[in-house]
Design a binder for these strands. Structure first.
Length: 931
RNA sequence: GCGGAUGUGGUGGAAUUGGUAGACACGCCAGACUUAGGAUCUGGUGCCGCAAGGUGUGGGGGUUCGAGUCCCUUCAUCCGCACCA
């Protein structure tokens, strides 16, 4: 590295602009943040959720988590850890492609431009990322390995006996020797194949069956199709019946799609939650998403038909309370069991349900349904049970059919009431006839052989009974579906798959990466295919095979990126086993809750697959997760008098008929609009007139999401330009706990800035220059120092950065008060401060005459003996009220403290001569006297 | 509806295992310096009260010598899921 700092100018005033520019260059030139995989220090891996480089850049809400992780990473380094703290870009995805469609710019070009903006914004804040390890999911060197992992998924199946993913070749051996008797297909539930049959099949037929086992598989399925985006979306990309991005309507559509068999991992994803430190609410979100439930599948015979109706229920104990059955409108049985007498009505109802969009279905949940005219038979008491079809039963869950128990289920109850179906009471007094009672704590009545049995026991008895009679079995169900993995888009990873006679084959590893070809047009291909389908020269290969034209979804690249950082330039493997063994799990992962069920579940699954296949040595990617809160925008509103170019100040708007408009917060100081800047900001504002109050234009305010559409996004660059990165960093931390949501509010930033200037003045007199001395510190100064070091260390460890900032403020206040300018005190403070405010710490460190960096010093040790004072001021409570404060030697034992306190004049006065009933002495803390 | 979380001054927020509630900062008030200040510095600032003192962590109840912290109950707000049988 040579000399760390070539020349040093004495700087008397705190010129943060010069300081920050200078040190950014020094840090970059010396590569101080470079991290090696070869180190004898203990490792620590701290990861930020990498950003999607959108066109609007970062606003002050984004860096909150990055600042916290940066502080922690720097702190861990001071503490002697080899810290991996990388950054990259989640660069494939829809918005870049939409932008390409609108502006005819290749997504790679706009993405590159956006990344440059992000990088410069990040650099401005002074992060300690090792940029040598930067990754971009859209680059072939990276997505080569995304494709490679896809091939591993394609070449694997889930063995339910060993409870892990295994190679397809092993499954082929099993099928060839014993058939699938021990390994039923998860995709083709009814498939039975003997070894002899298997061996006699054609390759095409065999591969078709293998497909139903693979972890990445092709299937026809109902998927969410978004017409506006021209693509299929995953469940978590659909919110309230519209697309998460853009809010476009979605419909169900049958398409041949790639899927990831994440359901095979449902139990392990659930169990893994016990081992990781995620917030309880986030774990709960994942549990709800996985949605595991226990119950039974029961076959009900249908009058006049051979095949029974299979239902799923979590409450088999309520089988004597079944008053009707309901099947989903899409259920194939409807057409078969409906007699001619009811056919017209049923078909009308089915037409009605099909006409309703998913959005309508979700927003207006009205009770609807239609009797099919068919009857099922209760297997235990032989009752005839009418079979209805209704849209409140979902085709995709369980068997798509339920047994309805109106006295025990609210929806069944409402349905029975609505259609005037009589209700059987099996709950005795627990059911009052006005509402269903879904309790599981009770005793059944009117229930045949389980009358008088507690419900929890009856569940098992009924399951045993149906299993004995061969009409059902216990069954675990999951709400989670396999994840759709195909997108009919351009800007994503191409699948390393070709079709021969419509049968998919994997590309050979040596053919990776399969690069994304350049296209002229980003518009859709034929038949709901993506833009790649237009490139026939690319899709149709000389050997007659045809390429897959879909691309992978956005979450593909982000499902394993944390592994690539460990070994980012490896051309032989996604990550060497050596590197992943060294770095291991991410010790701390920081990001927003928006990825609670998407990215976090997918990456957990991929990690488990790679673990099962022996590529890595751990199966949970993230040890600990911290969800940073969102910073809300503080919007500014202006009021335009309707039909004019006149704007009226907020306090006077009642007198006019106005339209409320958002105004760019950057044009407003507090609530005062800079009218001149406003006129210049947009052409149509040039002629604006203002009705002022007290000589100024006051804006209205509103707290809402921070973002471009509300014009309330504050660019960190602007804050850094005004106050410096150190102030910005510390202020974001000072705002409150990292996990909390909070509005952006510039009011308090002056306080933090003042603190840094005050710190500067401890070192420098703005007129006369350096003022530090080599004098020996006093006990009191040492106490301030060591108290601060302890507080900062403890609070940093527990991720409480707002209290750290306060501790530094107290420290500087106390040192200022004591007029302390001693190196022996100031230097350790700088070291402890440098994770929070690296620029000022580095500059002052250099000014003190050091030629190395403050960023690599060890965190100063603190000594408890120097913190504790010789005497303790005991608050003395008499009957719960503090009546006196008495200073006593710290060394005094309880008896001595008690004696001294009782002898004290003020205490005796308050006790009014009465003897104490009880005296409690908490050493070093408090004395409580009960009279 | 279900699940999770959170309620502390005018504001953002402190308060390790129950032990002086309101640290720190903003704002506000007063003062100093200044031609001036949206600069800087000093002091004050939970509420009621001149004071002594009282009171106070959404409300009510409980455990305890002692509760913001633990338990019960109730209210309010935020977030997530939402016909999942």
């Amino acid at each position: 590295m040579g000399r760390y700092l070539k020349q040093l100018q004495i700087m008397s005033t705190y010129d943060f602009g010069r300081i920050e520019k200078k040190w950014q260059e020094v840090w970059q030139n010396t590569g101080i943040y470079r991290v090696s995989n070869a180190s004898d220090r203990p490792k620590y891996y701290i990861l930020d959720m990498f950003p999607y480089p959108s066109g609007s850049g970062l606003h002050v809400g984004h860096p909150l988590g990055y600042i916290a992780s940066d502080i922690y990473a720097r702190y861990k380094r001071l503490k002697g850890f080899n810290v991996l703290h990388p950054m990259g870009y989640d660069a494939f995805g829809l918005p870049a492609e939409q932008y390409a469609l609108d502006h005819k710019v290749h997504p790679a070009v706009s993405t590159e431009a956006n990344i440059r903006t992000f990088r410069s914004q990040l650099d401005n804040i002074g992060f300690c990322y090792d940029w040598d390890r930067e990754i971009r999911t859209c680059e072939p060197q990276y997505y080569k390995w995304t494709q490679w992992i896809f091939l591993q998924l394609f070449d694997s199946w889930y063995n339910i006996h060993t409870d892990r993913a295994e190679r397809i070749a092993g499954l082929v051996d099993i099928l060839a020797t014993e058939g699938n008797i021990n390994h039923p297909s998860p995709g083709l539930k009814d498939l039975t194949v003997t070894a002899a049959e298997w061996n006699s099949w054609s390759e095409t037929r065999q591969r078709e069956v293998l497909m139903s086992y693979r972890l990445a598989y092709l299937d026809y399925a109902d998927v969410w199709w978004c017409e506006a985006l021209g693509t299929v979306l995953a469940n978590d990309e659909v919110v309230n019946g519209v697309s998460e991005r853009g809010g476009h309507p979605v419909v169900r559509r049958q398409l041949r799609q790639w899927f990831l068999r994440i359901t095979a991992y449902a139990d392990r994803l659930l169990a893994g939650l016990e081992q990781v430190a995620f917030s309880e609410s986030l774990k709960e979100m994942q549990r709800n998403w996985i949605g595991k439930s226990f119950g039974a599948e029961i076959d009900f015979a249908i009058e006049g038909h051979d095949t029974p109706l299979r239902v799923y229920t979590t409450r088999p104990d309520t089988i004597f309370g079944v008053d009707f059955m309901v099947v989903a409108p899409e259920h194939e049985i409807v057409a078969r069991i409906t007699p001619d007498t009811h056919r017209e009505a049923v078909e009308a109802y089915l037409a009605y349900t099909q006409s309703r969009s998913e959005l309508e279905r979700m927003s207006e949940k009205k009770i609807s349904g239609c009797f099919t005219g068919a009857y099922a038979i209760n297997p235990f008491d032989g009752r005839r049970i009418p079979i209805w079809v209704a849209e409140y039963v979902l085709a995709g869950y369980g068997t798509g059919a339920i047994m309805a128990v109106p006295c025990g289920d609210e929806r069944d109850f409402a349905f029975a009431r609505h259609f005037d179906i009589s209700i059987t009471n099996i709950l005795g007094d627990l059911y009052d006839g006005t509402a269903a009672n879904p309790t599981k704590d009770g005793v059944l009545s009117n229930s045949g052989f389980i009358t008088g049995v507690p419900m929890s026991a009856a569940i098992l008895q009924v399951i045993e009974a149906i299993e004995a009679r061969g009409i059902g079995r216990r069954q675990t169900n999951y709400r989670m579906r396999d994840a759709g993995f195909s997108r009919q888009r351009y800007w994503g990873e191409p699948f390393p798959i070709v079709y021969r006679q419509d049968v998919p084959y994997a590309l050979d590893e040596s053919q990776l990466p399969l690069e994304l070809p350049v296209v002229d047009s980003y518009s859709q291909g034929p038949d709901g295919q993506g833009p790649l389908a237009n490139l026939t020269h690319w899709t149709h290969l000389p050997d007659g095979t045809i390429r897959e034209t879909n691309t992978m979804p956005g979450y593909a690249g982000s499902s394993w990126y944390f592994l690539r950082y460990m070994d980012p330039h490896n051309t032989e493997a996604f990550c060497s086993r050596e590197a992943s063994d060294y770095w291991g799990q991410v010790d701390l992962y920081i990001g927003g809750t928006e990825h609670a069920v998407g990215h976090l579940l997918y990456s957990r699954m991929w990690t488990k697959v790679l673990y099962d296949l022996g590529y890595i040595g751990f199966e949970e990617p993230y040890k600990k997760l911290v969800n940073q809160g969102k910073i809300g925008g503080d919007s500014r509103l202006i009021y335009r008098v309707r039909g004019t170019q006149t704007y009226v100040s907020a306090g006077l708007r009642e007198a006019y008929e106005t339209d409320e408009l958002h105004v760019d917060v950057n044009l407003v100081n507090g609530v005062e609009l800079d009218t001149a800047a406003f006129r210049k900001s947009r052409e149509d504002y040039a002629q604006a007139e203002f009705i002022l109050e007290d000589g100024v234009y006051r804006c209205g305010t509103r707290l809402e999401k921070m973002g471009k559409r509300y014009l309330n996004a504050v660019n960190p660059d602007a804050v850094v330009a005004q106050y410096g990165a150190d102030t910005f960093r510390m202020y974001e931390m000072f705002l409150g706990p990292v996990e909390a949501d909070k509005p952006w509010d510039m009011q308090g930033i002056e306080g933090v800035h003042r603190f840094l200037r005050k710190l500067w003045r401890l070192f420098m007199d703005e007129r006369t220059g350096p003022r530090w001395t080599d004098d020996a510190p006093t006990a009191s100064e040492l106490r301030t120092l060591h108290k601060t070091l302890r507080k900062v260390e403890e609070d940093t460890e527990r991720f409480s950065f707002n209290t750290c900032v306060s501790a530094f403020m107290v420290c500087v206040n106390e040192l200022t008060e004591q007029d302390c300018h001693k190196r022996a005190v100031l230097e350790p403070v700088l070291v402890a401060l440098c994770p929070f405010a690296p620029f000022i710490a580095e500059e002052l460190w250099a000014q003190l005459g050091h030629t190395d960096s403050v960023l690599v010093q060890p965190f100063p040790a603190w000594d408890p003996a120097l913190i504790e004072e010789d005497s303790v001021e005991y608050p003395v409570q008499i009957n719960g009220k503090v009546r006196a404060k008495i200073s006593l030697p710290r060394a005094a034992d309880n008896a001595a403290v008690e004696a001294a306190v009782l002898a004290h004049a003020t205490v005796q006065q308050w006790m009014e001569g009465k003897p104490p009933k009880k005296v409690i002495v908490v050493p070093g803390k408090i004395v409580n006297i009960v009279v």
